[in-house]
Computed example of a mutant assay.
Amino acid sequence: MPKTRRCHYPNCHKIVKQPDHYCQLHYEHEAEYLAKRQRWARSHDKQYVHHYNTVTRNRTNDKRMQYNFYRTKQWSRLRRIVLERDHYLCAYCQVQGKLTPARTVDHIVPIEFSPNDKANVSNLAIICGSCHRLKTDWEQSYYGTGQGKRVQHVHAIHDVQAIVVLMNGEN
């Protein structure tokens, strides 16, 4: 029996045989759909992804070593410990009186600024997506972290509550 799928036309539920994507009634959209898929595939080919991961993302050896740390067993173990310790709740939201579930473990003081604290459990906290974006922007301006930036000589801030105040721009 041949494989089948539903017609890709909105609200059309007719069954078509693969490799077609549209039924006989909407078949004129097939060529446009295939062209769109080819354009997408060309812009998302393996060479592009490989170039991004090996050249653009890891421009320096420091960055390469930093990203490689997140692929180690040590990081997996540390991450699990912190997630269980903080009950999968964003530490930065908790300071603001909110309970937000999260699964991302973040370094309170970035690795680029303090490489010796990368495996220190007390330097790790759970963070949600919105807080992570705010904190990353704040880190880049305060510590000078990020691609192509110079790390500044400032005092490290280890207190989550102080970071929340600073990253939200409160006085």
Rank of each mutant, 00 (worst) to 15 (best):
K17N: 11
H21S: 12
Y22G: 06
C23A: 07
C23H: 01
Y27N: 14
E30D: 03
L34Y: 06
L34D: 08
L34F: 05
K36C: 15
R37D: 12
Q38G: 03
R39N: 09
W40M: 10
S43G: 12
S43W: 05
D45S: 07
D45R: 06
Q47H: 14
Y48M: 15
Y48Q: 12
H50I: 12
Y52P: 04
N53V: 06
T56N: 01
R57D: 04
R59P: 12
N61Y: 06
N61P: 14
M65E: 14
Y67N: 11
F69T: 00
Y70D: 05
R71C: 09
R71N: 15
T72C: 00
T72F: 03
K73V: 13
Q74W: 03
R77H: 10
L78M: 05
R79G: 04
I81W: 08
V82D: 05
V82R: 07
L83S: 01
E84S: 08
E84Y: 01
E84M: 10
D86S: 04
H87C: 15
A91M: 11
Y92F: 11
C93Q: 04
V95Y: 02
Q96F: 02
G97F: 01
K98A: 13
K98M: 10
T100S: 10
R103F: 12
D106L: 02
D106Q: 11
H107V: 02
V109H: 01
P110R: 00
I111C: 00
I111N: 06
E112T: 02
E112H: 00
E112D: 05
E112Y: 00
F113H: 11
S114C: 15
S114R: 09
P115M: 02
D117R: 10
K118G: 06
A119Q: 09
S122P: 04
A125V: 07
I127E: 08
G129A: 09
S130Y: 11
C131T: 03
H132R: 04
R133S: 15
T136N: 09
W138G: 04
E139Y: 03
Q140R: 10
S141P: 05
T145L: 05
G146R: 02
G146C: 02
Q147W: 13
Q147P: 12
R150D: 15
